[in-house]
Amino acid sequence: MLEVSQLKKHFGALKVIDGVNLSVARGEALGILGPNGAGKSTLFNLISGNLSPTAGTIRLNGEDITRASPWTRVRGGIGRTFQIPHPFVHLSVFENVLVSATQASGRGIAVARPEVNRILDLCQLSHRSRTLAGDLPLLDLKRLELAKALGTSPRLLLLDEIAGGLTNSECVALLAILETIKSEGVTIVWIEHIVHALIKVATRLVVLAEGNLIANGTPETVMADAKVRDLYLGVEA
């Protein structure tokens, strides 16, 4: 579904992404691990079109989208969340999701309304639907970030540290939502530091360090990899 080839992003002399190759199959749930500054969020920004790459190509369902705008990619089926939530603070929770449910698809407001209510139910935000997004606590902001991404009806969902800052019980609730999304056939790529949560959803893991992929395989294989344990987990091989 997604093919990233020789992708590079340099900011002057700083090589944040330096020749990453990555494929994601339809229906797969891929986890991305890596220390802070490894280039994980930059990789997402390149895939979603928020940044332009220095070199390399990105293909979605065989189509080259390397230079496409973010909104064109959304129409192509890419939805994403940000590590730091990007709510529309002066709009209500309902309207936040209504934005994503109407803009990408071109649906009218009245037509999109039932779908927005379904997504709010799924993300356990129905009771907050009239609350201004600027007034939400962190957990609900994270849920809203997910709900907004789901509003675009994504076939490929990019999740950037969606579980960061959540308590154990909140994390369990989030995992249940992600399992539902996965069961609907949505392909998931999830950047996360909370490994125990990630491996409950991910069927494959890759590890990014200093702009390069250093490991790729099943969660068991990757977590047992000596280089990963040394570089990322800080466990000597």
Partner: peptide
């Protein structure tokens, strides 16, 4: 108005 980067990935042209 509220968040240009967020609007773009919500599908706003």
């Amino acid at each position: 108005r509220d968040n240009e980067e967020g609007a773009a990935v919500a599908g706003v042209n």
